[in-house]
């Protein structure tokens, strides 16, 4: 235990540096996923045929082992080793939780509410913008939470394709058989993931409108 603390203190600057890269990779991946997958989710909520295809693709991508997906992107000439491969893989993994939650969030909006809006003379664009989207926000946010937590773990694996982040402590530690190094990397990655999960989970509960909270718990 004291060895572990000693290692952490001695290498604080590297660890901090790696943590920073870790966060920046997660951050870019989440931002791109939001910009890309929310519109896709909205689009497929209005077209059932497309929804089947897109959700099937998302599900299939999600199944691919992360090391395998990284490995495939490394072989693509203009991606190669490093950040662009890692980013693309993370964005593709985010497709499943993001698209499905946006889609379901919009789909589970009470039909009576939509009927009422129609009765008030709203067109479908207005219904989407003013009713379905706001009511879907808590479910969408759940997708964002899953994406962030998942990216934290998968980003560590990107260390094998040249990302200099906390995963590197694990990969290098395994190669050098340096147990303190492995533990530092693994514990930090796990703590960050649990931290994100807890904080975003608390935030998610706050986002649910009061009236909906009661119905969901049943």
């Amino acid at each position: 235990m004291s060895d572990l603390l000693k290692y952490m203190v001695e290498n604080a600057s590297i660890i901090l540096n790696y943590t920073e890269t870790h966060f920046s990779l997660i951050f870019s991946a989440v931002i791109i996923s939001l910009l890309l997958w929310i519109p896709v989710g909205i689009l497929i909520s209005r077209n059932e045929k497309l929804a089947g295809i897109v959700l099937g693709i998302a599900n299939t991508i999600f199944c691919i082992p992360s090391l395998a997906l990284f490995a495939v992107f490394v072989t693509v000439p203009f991606l190669g080793l490093g950040r662009s491969s890692a980013l693309l893989a993370l964005v593709l993994y985010a497709m499943m939780p993001m698209v499905i939650n946006v889609y379901q969030g919009i789909k589970i909006v009470d039909k009576n509410v939509i009927e009422a809006a129609k009765g008030m003379g709203m067109n479908s664009g207005q219904i989407l913008k003013e009713i379905q989207f706001p009511l879907a926000v808590p479910v969408m946010f759940a997708g964002v939470r899953i994406t962030v937590v998942m990216s934290t773990g998968i980003a560590a694996i990107a260390a094998y394709i040249g990302e200099r982040n906390l995963g590197r402590l694990i990969t290098e530690g395994l190669t050098r058989n340096n147990i303190e190094m492995i533990l530092t990397g693994a514990i930090l990655v796990a703590l960050i993931a649990i931290f994100f999960d807890t904080v975003l989970g608390a935030f998610e509960k706050m986002l649910v409108p009061k009236g909906l909270k009661i119905r969901r718990s049943n």
Partner: peptide, 17 residues
């Protein structure tokens, strides 16, 4: 639920020692 967030790579890495 908390451990659900635990990354697979961290589990592998913690198993080795």
């Amino acid at each position: 639920n908390i451990f659900q967030a635990f990354p697979g790579m961290a589990i592998i890495a913690l198993t080795m020692p």
